[in-house]
Design a protein around this nucleic acid. Structure first.
Length: 478
RNA sequence: GGCCCGUUGGUCAAGCGGUUAAGACACGGCCCUUUCACGGCUGAGACACGAGUUCGAUUCUCGUACGGGUCACCA
């Protein structure tokens, strides 16, 4: 059975790239009936951020990415928090020392720094100063309580590994450093803990960002040193902010939480992100998470970085809003609606209905309905519309006619208002638009509105409608 | 700088030796229409460059350019 894992370190927010990695790991497992595991990698105590673990839990929950095993749900391979598993790592490292695949190193940081500074080129591999230290000396220094690390001994030769998306990659071991496995604080480095944990947790597919591509040979060497089975590697290209910069946590707008705050729906974000770096076999773009679980296939994974495009996300979000049933939409929209429309007696449900097909995000509702509470101070040039065949004169006349007609209307409903106005146009011998456009303009004070003249009139009510038309007339008379 | 990886319209992308090089977003136009939007139709727009291999290269190989990653007691 396939087992994948998401192994974030709790060092801050979860940006779209992190989320996409988790999503792909989840989909790779689920598309083949496998298990998806969450493991928190907190070996670096200095970078630990309070609350970051909760952000991870919340984000995955909101996105609908459920893990079969994890710190808060348990499982047979726990604990799922790396700091709680630390005792094991040093034993594994010692095992490697015994096998001659790793060695103790007592070099001070100072010596290491000098080593780096003295080499003119940027290749600053460890010089293996401690590699051949006699056993007695090692034991003596350990007994003395000297600080030490344990380093991996890289063998000579070449290492080849296979990656599902990038294919076969070979590097000369000469390029590889004798990396530290156990730090002087006794904790494992990420690279080491990762290998141990993945093996112990039976992870079959190691899925991660392509920034790990270059350390993968060292992983392989470690698996080989232990005599363990090498997992299937799947490296993912980065998600970029623009052609030159990777998406960064700092930039807020790319974090999942921020997108939610901006009025994006989790389902839409998941859908969009799934398509950022992966393409389905069929020519289609709208997929629910359940559907993705069925059709996901690593063949569709792309090699090159993708730029996160908020415009397309917004479009997709709009598609989700349009497709949503009204009650659910209203539930989501209500807070924004109440926030942006304070005027009493406005039928918010009607307003919601008009706005539903016209927005990309829930938050856009606010500016779309901002004319309800107070009529904007618009320019009378708005009344002149070529396509509607209106001029200031025609508009003035239409508004006057509309005003006197509307004053007598009793049945203040959209249908009734619409038919009365079109009938008036017929009687006056003008096109519908020559009256409806000016009225629409007078009522909204904006070049565009979420609905037409009659709907606006109904929404605003008789009193406000008449008042706004009078304002329009005044503007045009001057 | 060494090593590794990448490069199809502005963006996401299909393509796996022979195609008029899909589709989506964005953009322009038209239609529909009480504005906008929706919907429908339509337009412009791409294989980074140079050599090979081949009857034939966007597809294969090698260079060049550009971009990214990595070279930590960070993950």
């Amino acid at each position: 059975m396939i087992r994948t894992r998401f192994a974030p370190s709790p060092t801050g927010y979860m940006h779209i790239g992190n989320l996409r990695t988790a999503l792909y790991e989840y989909l790779i497992a689920k598309s083949q009936g496998g298990k998806f595991i969450l493991r928190i990698e907190d070996t670096d105590r200095e970078r630990f951020v309070e609350g970051a673990v909760d952000v991870i839990y919340e984000t995955l929950a909101m996105a609908g990415i459920k893990y079969d095993e994890g710190p808060d749900v348990g499982g047979d391979y726990g604990p799922y928090i790396q700091s709680e598993r630390k005792n094991n790592y040093i034993d594994y490292a010692k095992q490697l020392v015994d096998k001659g695949e790793a060695y103790y190193c007592f070099c001070t940081k100072q010596r290491l720094d000098e080593l780096k500074n003295n080499s003119s080129d940027k290749i600053a591999k460890y010089d293996r100063h401690c590699l051949n230290m006699p056993k007695q000396e090692i034991e003596q220094r350990l007994k003395n309580g000297e600080e030490y690390v344990i380093r991996q001994k890289i063998r000579e030769g070449k290492t080849t590994f296979k990656d599902v998306v990038y294919g076969e990659i070979t590097v000369d071991n000469d390029e590889l450093d004798d990396q530290i496995l156990i730090k002087s604080d006794g904790l494992a480095t990420y690279n080491f803990a990762n290998v141990i944990d993945d093996h112990l947790m039976n992870i079959t597919h190691v899925v991660r960002g392509s920034e790990y591509l270059s350390s993968t040979p060292k992983y392989n060497l470690l698996y080989e040193a232990f005599g363990w089975e090498i997992p299937t590697y799947i490296h993912l290209p980065a998600v970029m902010k623009n052609s030159g910069e990777k998406l960064s946590k700092r930039n807020g707008d790319a974090s999942f939480q921020d997108l939610i705050k901006k009025g994006y729906l989790p389902e839409a974000i998941i859908n969009y992100v799934a398509l950022l770096g992966w393409a389905p076999k069929e020519n289609r773009e709208i997929y629910s998470l359940e559907e993705l679980e069925k059709v996901f296939n690593t063949d569709g994974l792309s090699k090159s970085p993708a730029i996160f495009d908020i415009v397309k996300l917004t479009w997709m979000n709009g598609e989700y809003i349009k497709a949503m049933d009204f009650d659910k939409f209203y539930e989501l929209a209500e807070p924004v609606l109440k926030q942006s429309v304070k005027t009493e007696k406005i039928d918010l449900k009607k307003a919601a209905g008009y706005v539903k097909t016209r927005i990309g995000t829930i938050n856009e509702i606010a500016q779309m309905l901002d004319f309800i509470d107070s009529l904007p101070d618009y320019d009378k040039a708005l009344y002149v519309h070529k396509k509607m065949k209106t001029t200031e004169e025609i508009s003035l006349k239409s508004l006057k006619e509309a005003l006197s007609m509307l004053e007598n209307i009793q049945d203040w409903t959209n249908d009734s208002l619409y038919s009365s106005m079109t009938e008036l146009c017929k009687n006056l011998g003008i096109k519908n638009s020559q009256l409806l456009w000016p009225v629409r303009t007078a009522l909204s004070g904006k070049p565009t509105s979420p609905c037409g003249a009659s709907e606006l009139a109904e929404l605003l009510g008789k009193e406000e409608t008449l008042k706004r038309i009078k304002i329009g007339i005044d503007k045009l008379v001057i």
